[in-house]
């Protein structure tokens, strides 16, 4: 029996007279990596805020089993704390001081920032800061990781490296992950399942599974093919696969 850490049942969200989400139903299984993509302003962040519990749906229900942690675009670290102190926030349940120190060291090593324990965030590059955020979120026994465009504030090459880094970290410390992003490459390279949202009010428009094991290369055929499917679904690329009669993806609607 697999537990369902996250389950949305006909979730709608209105802001005054604006309908942002319409009857979104979604079940995420334990250890699954789900990416949510969609046009900007479509309600991705609203969905994430409700998953994290910062916001409540207007109608519908959300079930959440386990401790949720969020990773932000940038500046999610406390600038007044060092790398080690920021990571220690994720280990507040660990009361034993030496046990905590040992776990901090392990995490610092895991993100390859040995020697930077006592640096402050403003002394690190954007990519290093995001690695510290990931380490903080993965510290201890959290269950669900919510990623809000975590790599959108860093340059392209750093972004590619951070994706590999995230895949490696999740291999070491498996979590249930929801990644919200406008970066379709990112979704295709990382996720087990990609959810494509429609324009506002957002509904699930399309869903596709990618079974290739992580870490995947950006040019892995399944990744390339998934990117093409998503772009086609968003009306940006032409559907040559369908015309060739070779459609091995299944649309949900």
């Amino acid at each position: 029996m697999s537990i369902k850490p996250l389950r949305l049942e006909k979730v709608s969200r209105w802001f005054d007279a604006v309908e942002v989400l319409r009857e979104v139903s979604l079940t995420i299984t334990r250890g699954e990596f789900v990416a949510v993509v969609g046009p900007s302003g479509c309600g991705k962040t609203t969905l994430l805020n409700m998953l994290s519990g910062f916001d409540l749906p207007t109608s519908g229900s959300i079930e959440r089993a386990g401790e949720v942690r969020m990773v932000y675009q940038q500046d999610g670290l406390f600038p007044w704390l060092t790398v080690a102190q920021n990571i220690a926030l994720g280990l507040r349940q660990v009361k034993n001081a030496s046990e905590q120190t040992q776990q901090i060291n392990e995490l610092v090593e895991l993100i390859r920032l040995d020697g930077f324990e006592n640096h402050y965030p403003h002394q690190l590059s954007g990519g290093m800061r995001q690695r510290v955020e990931m380490a903080r979120a993965l510290a201890g026994d959290s269950d669900i990781l919510l990623l809000d465009e975590p790599f959108s504030a860093v340059d392209y090459l750093t972004r590619l490296r951070l994706r590999q880094e995230l895949a490696r970290l999740l291999d070491e410390r498996p979590r249930t992950v929801v990644l919200v992003t406008h970066d379709i490459e990112e979704a295709a390279q990382l996720a087990d399942r990609v959810i494509v949202l429609s324009e506002r009010p957002a509904r699930i428009r399309y869903e596709l599974s990618i079974s290739a094991p992580r870490p995947r290369d950006l040019t892995h055929p399944e990744v390339v093919s998934a990117i093409h499917r998503i772009l086609t679904e968003l009306g940006i690329e032409h559907d040559y696969e369908k015309t060739a009669g070779d459609n091995h993806f299944v649309a949900v609607e």
Binding site: S52, F54, V68, R69, M70, Y72, D75, G76, F78, L89, G90, R92, R136
Partner: peptide, 12 residues
Amino acid sequence: PTVYFRVAQNYG
């Protein structure tokens, strides 16, 4: 920034 308080809530 609101994000600090959200992080605080996340980490108890």
